[in-house]
Design a protein around this nucleic acid. Structure first.
Length: 572
RNA sequence: CGGGACGUGGCGCAGUUUGGUAGCGCGCAUCGUUCGGGACGAUGAGGUCGCCGGUUCGAAUCCGGCCGUCCCGACCA
């Protein structure tokens, strides 16, 4: 390719509305352009990288025996109603109507359609099956952001496994886990597998592959000592015991005028430290009022509440709802004596006594509360948000918490979809059993952007060779110098003949413009051809990642670069 | 959905407070001089000032409504 003919609209300045490094650099480097919020056009450079990301994913899927499909993006709404997800995913579902009034949805994922096809499986002899596709997904994200990291239309590799039993699912899950480790290694992404919440997918277990990055949207608790890693939506920690002392035989009310917060009550005479208070939150779970109890110094992890209860719609109660329910305002709430409302308490409150909590009377609190004696707890669950510095549940070392991008997610789904859509087979005993499913996703453009988040510097992108839009660029410093032109073109052609993906920068521009563009765009190897070097019979090779330069004779240049490219392709 | 900001040639911005008919830098075109790290000079093209309505002799500027985009939060296989 000749740069002079290529559409690579680089920008000299940063785009005004791009915050994340990947967003900024992909726009500046001429890889993408925004069409509307959360919807991007991929320009030739972006498309080249995307193709390479997909190729790596495809190779690793084929390597574990997956069969590629192409499924529709247009689905009948009816199918989504059958699994209940028309309602569960309503907030992200893009829906439309055809001319006959038929209700359609644009697929946000493909469990339903794949499972429908799997209903054609009839015998355990046909199992296991492993199916996948690389297809566009539509999700009406409430808040698209950070360029390609969170969009409303994107490409995803989604695969689905179908097995007779849990053991089969475990095998396929493990195969995917290993395949994902290889994929992220080849993409140059330092992804960490973490225990995750299954969210709206349902199912018995899931692992997210997280790449530490400031632009991430998830927090991961990680133990540097033993390697424990979990999304904070699932993470736990070991807490030091709190000494409560003996309490009275029954809770005692005491006036606390003006006390509204945990912190107020710590200061208030006769109050208590935060870890000896009970925090009482009122939530509506699918429309049903519920009290959520936590230790005073702990924060609720809402996803844990969702996962524990299976509730779809979870929201804090409004002030007037709280007053109606408990007869007091937030600040004086408690669960003592509450009987007609379900009470979910965090594990950290188990066995605690002599605690302080609201009395459900404004400006009044109770002391001497023994949780198990005085509160009608309906369920005990792990609900609190883990904090950095708390002890690792496995080894006790202090946990760290960092931001990360979810680059991939694998789920054990179980039989939920198979049951809803009648995907069953006959087992050895002739008994009809639902297929046991797994589902496994990697977002293509999100991974492309994540690579940029991880691999860039102040000059631009530093693509790993494995996904670079071009592996090498031949920069002709002075295009009207015949020797430079001839030599540059010859090296370019030699590189092409050697199978290197190369572009020749033949633009009549100042050298600085060409060097800067090559660095912005992130091409791994640059061969600089100019009169100065040619006078000595040499050209210059610059490695983008290290900035190292070396001189090569004209004769050896192409083979040398081709060898480096070859090594680069292999090492990632 | 709650909070905040913004919308002016392709890109980045000023002008809006105090209404008078649009400007700067980059980019683009032509010519000349330059040429190994984003050159210089000259000439030139390019804008319904997001949209609709109102106030006014006159609106980028004031008022109302709408649309769009970004950021924080909520939400999110």
């Amino acid at each position: 390719m000749r740069w002079s003919q290529a559409f690579i609209p680089t920008l000299r300045e940063d785009p005004a509305d791009a915050e994340a490094a990947s967003h900024r650099l992909l726009v500046r480097g001429g890889f993408v352009r925004q069409l509307m919020a959360g919807v991007y056009s991929l320009l030739p450079l972006g498309r080249r990288v995307r193709t390479k990301v997909m190729r790596i994913i495809r190779e690793e899927m084929e390597a574990i025996g997956a069969q590629e499909f192409v499924l529709p993006e247009l689905h009948p709404a009816e199918l989504w109603r059958r699994t209940g997800r028309y309602e569960v995913m309503a907030d992200v579902l893009l829906t439309l109507e055809d001319h006959r009034g038929g209700e359609l949805v644009l697929g946000p994922t493909h469990e339903e359609v794949f499972t429908l096809l799997a209903a054609e499986l009839t015998s355990y002899r046909e199992l296991p099956q492993l199916w996948y596709q690389i297809q566009t997904k539509f999700r009406d994200e409430p808040r698209p952001k950070s360029g390609l990291l969170r969009t409303r239309e994107f490409t995803m590799k989604d695969s689905y496994s179908f097995d007779l039993d849990e053991e089969g699912l475990d095998r396929q899950f493990r195969a995917h886990y290993d395949a994902y480790v290889r994929i992220f290694r080849r993409l140059g992404l330092p992804a960490i597998p973490v225990v995750a919440s299954s969210g709206a997918m349902g199912g018995s277990g899931s692992v997210e592959f997280m790449v530490p990055a400031a632009a991430g949207e998830d927090d991961v608790a990680h133990c540097p000592s033993c390697g424990y890693a979990a999304n904070v939506e699932r993470a736990t920690s070991t807490l030091p015991a709190v000494e409560d002392g003996e309490g009275p035989a029954a809770p005692e009310a005491f006036p606390t005028p003006g006390v509204r917060t945990i912190a107020d009550l710590e200061e208030f005479p006769g109050g208590a430290p935060a870890d000896r208070q009970i925090k009482t939150l009122v939530y509506f779970l699918d429309g049903r009022a519920t009290l959520v109890l936590l230790r005073g110094d702990h924060a609720l992890q809402e996803q844990k509440l969702r996962d524990a209860t299976g509730a779809v719609e979870v929201r804090p109660a409004r002030p007037e709802e709280i007053r109606t329910l408990l007869g007091a305002d937030a600040g004086s709430l408690g669960a003592v004596g509450v009987e007609d409302v379900p009470i979910i308490a965090d594990l950290a409150l188990r066995g605690r006594r002599n605690l302080v909590t609201g009395a459900n009377v404004d400006d009044t609190h109770l002391r001497g509360v023994d949780v198990e004696r005085d509160v009608a707890v309906s369920r005990w669950e792990d609900l609190r948000a883990v904090r950095a510095g708390e002890a690792c549940p496995d080894c006790g070392a202090p946990l760290e918490v960092f931001r990360a991008i979810e680059a991939g997610h694998i789920f054990k789904l179980g039989t939920r979809y198979a049951e809803a859509l009648g995907a069953t087979v006959l087992d050895v005993d002739g008994k009809q059993v639902p297929l046991v499913m797994g589902s496994y996703g990697i977002g293509v453009e999100r991974n492309l952007a994540t690579i940029v988040e991880v691999h860039h510097d102040d000059k631009g992108i530093v693509w790993p060779v494995s996904v670079a839009p071009y592996e090498a660029v031949v920069t002709i410093v002075k295009v009207d110098d015949t020797d430079s032109w001839e030599t540059g073109k010859r090296i370019y052609e030699e590189l092409e003949a050697l199978g290197v993906e190369v572009i020749v920068d033949d633009r009549d521009e100042r050298p600085g413009v060409k060097f800067n563009d090559a660095e912005l765009v992130g091409i791994p190897f640059r061969v600089t051809v100019g009169p100065r070097g040619l006078a000595e019979g040499v050209v210059e090779l610059t490695t983008r990642a290290t900035g190292e330069r070396e001189e090569l004779t004209v004769a050896e240049a192409a083979t040398h670069v081709a060898r480096l490219v070859e090594e680069g392709r292999r090492s990632e």
